[in-house]
């Protein structure tokens, strides 16, 4: 894959950016260092994946790299670790719990935020500027500030340990960023759209459904992915509002408990960790562009 040496130097039409990067482009040390970085970054995860598929008796007897050297050894590989983790360690039920927690905790805030962002951007009402300033101020407030009082009221309102309780918490904690991002997007839509909708006699609600939502799909999608991953991977809010055990345990909590109870059982820990990573990695690989947009969009999250 050498860059063709016989070519004349200036080929601006095909490699527009090559010119300004020319001096070091694709030199051997550069390529080597890129390869090394990619290798180092992947190595820990690769070790986890390989180990999760190894015979439990072998995992602590030899390094996973030795397993790779002995690729066709008898009794080297098994999916038994995964079977045990999903069934007797309860990761299967936790997977369902994670879905129950994550999907509404993504849809509810984005719906509420979209309506609010539209109103903040395009419908004049008294106090609009002041209320939006509060939203901006709340962007970086650490959610730790909310835990103690809310936990107290949850105990009183028997919302502790319920899915509804954690939906509301995730919704509220996601709202400032969601409103802020969607406001930035929706307020940039052309004014003509709203004027002609008003002339056509469309109400605010109809304008929202027929004009704002279809045009805001990129922003809505980006935030959906960000919030989905954030909730799916969250440990703190789940530990505080759902508790460490019981029927409502989500996957990060389940994995966290396994570290405590099965600290030495690497065949279970590696398989368990990989089970929790499947959905986010799929989202990452399938929706890469939207994923990057989402992560970038969420970059101001507190």
């Amino acid at each position: 894959m050498m860059s063709a040496p016989a070519q004349p130097i200036a080929r601006p039409s095909t490699r527009r950016f090559a010119f300004w990067r020319a001096p070091m482009l694709e030199s051997l040390p550069l390529r080597l260092s890129v390869l090394i970085i990619c290798f180092l970054w992947t190595l820990p995860t690769a070790g986890l994946l390989v180990s999760s598929l190894r015979n439990p008796l072998l995992i602590t007897k030899s390094g996973w790299w030795e397993g790779l050297l002995n690729l066709f050894g008898a009794d080297q590989w098994t999916i038994g670790n995964y079977v045990q983790v999903v069934t007797s360690e309860g990761m299967g039920a936790s997977f369902l719990n994670s879905l129950i927690v994550t999907v509404p905790s993504t849809v509810i805030p984005i719906t509420i935020a979209a309506f609010a962002a539209y109103a903040f951007a395009w419908i004049p009402f008294p106090g609009r500027g002041f209320l939006f300033i509060i939203v901006v101020a709340l962007l970086v407030v650490p959610l730790q500030m909310a835990l103690i009082p809310i936990l107290r009221s949850y105990a009183g309102a028997s919302l502790y340990g319920t899915f509804v309780g954690i939906w509301l918490a995730h919704t509220a904690f996601g709202l400032p960023l969601a409103i802020f991002l969607l406001y930035n997007f929706i307020s940039q839509l052309p004014r003509d759209l709203f004027e002609s909708a008003a002339i056509d006699g469309a109400s605010h609600f109809q304008t929202f459904i027929r004009v704002v939502v279809p045009l805001s799909v990129p922003a809505l999608g980006a935030f959906t992915i960000f919030q989905f991953l954030w909730v799916w991977n969250d440990l703190l809010i789940a530990l505080v509002f759902l508790g460490p055990g019981g029927d409502v345990r989500i996957m990060p909590t389940a994995l966290f408990n396994m570290i405590g109870s099965r600290g030495g059982s690497w065949h279970l820990l590696t398989a368990g960790a990989f089970v929790t990573m499947v959905v986010p990695l799929l989202v990452f690989l399938l929706l890469q562009r939207a994923f990057v947009r989402g992560i970038l969009a969420g970059s101001v999250k507190a």
Partner: peptide
């Protein structure tokens, strides 16, 4: 006159109950 409030009140309610009030209380 009512419609904008229908749109923003759910958000304001949640922000007030889950962030503003608890932050002050903390």
């Amino acid at each position: 006159r009512i419609m904008p409030w229908v749109f923003v009140v759910p958000a304001l309610l949640l922000l007030g109950v889950y962030l503003v009030y608890p932050a002050v209380a903390t």
